[in-house]
Design a protein around this nucleic acid. Structure first.
Lengths: 138, 138
DNA sequence: GTAAAGTCTACTAATCCCATAGACTTTAAA
DNA sequence: TTTAAAGTCTATGGGATTAGTAGACTTTAC
């Protein structure tokens, strides 16, 4: 299960990508139309800004807008920033690898072998789907 | 990421399936060879027993053994018992469905559409892999 | 009858998730 | 130049979940 953080982040991104033009949109507007707690959304948008997906404008008439184009935003990238590893087990993560403390020998772990398959399959989808793809499906 | 519970459960099951014969194995033996906290493993094995995967024998010479054969234990089933939903979002779960409180219209949710794909892919692996498959890969 | 095993209930420490509060900064426009 | 509208930042807190522990209880082989 993914956290609300990730879900909300993806929804906010699609909201921004779906609009005509790229004018700043206020957090409150996104929060209201997507039914997201505004304060929580603030922190999510902030981390998407710090990682280069969004840009913001302060002051009156300010808000958030996409910095990258929707075709250039891979879902896998967003997922990793908001959720963390795509892998189901740390010893199989490409970007957040950690050794499992209970496994003396990784290569001998049958669970690991299975989890590699699951990861590769999830990755095949998430890394090849862009924000634009999400919108086009509608 | 899956919980240790699920990982430990799968490891314990493979441990049991890998042995010659089907004599009871003490919890302490499994715990020690798989580096799992014994008390924690007790509760995991208990829930696998209550759901029909394992059987136990009390008293001297007792322990746990497989009730189903390894070819008849699908990883997806074990996963659902120990971890819960395979889907990444409740509104897409086949066995643990819940409506998302923030979505007025499920069919209009682009995130949902993506998550259905991810679920189907994960399911294709987990539902078609058995405990026996895990062992055979070694 | 006793020691070896699983069973059950209860508890706890740590962590994470989701959210809220509020002071602060920047900016557009009157 | 003031003011209101916006994002920024820090701090906090309740609740749920996770991983594990303690200990009393039950069953069974010998």
């Amino acid at each position: 299960m993914i956290s609300r953080k990730t879900k909300y982040g993806l929804k906010a991104l699609t909201f921004l990508a779906r609009r005509e033009g790229n004018d700043p949109v206020q957090i409150s507007v996104i929060a209201e139309s997507e039914n997201i707690s505004q304060k929580f959304l603030e922190s999510i948008l902030l981390s998407l800004r710090k990682t280069g997906f969004l840009q913001s404008k302060k002051g009156k008439g300010g808000g958030y807008y996409l910095l990258k184009s929707a075709e250039n935003i891979k879902i896998a990238e967003v997922y990793r920033i908001l959720e963390g590893p795509i892998a189901l087990v740390p010893c199989v993560s490409l970007n957040f690898y950690e050794k499992c403390d209970d496994c003396p020998d990784e290569d001998a772990c049958t669970v690991r072998k299975l989890m590699i398959k699951v990861r590769d399959n999830a990755l095949a989808i998430l890394a090849n789907t862009t924000l634009q793809d999400l919108i086009d499906e509608e």
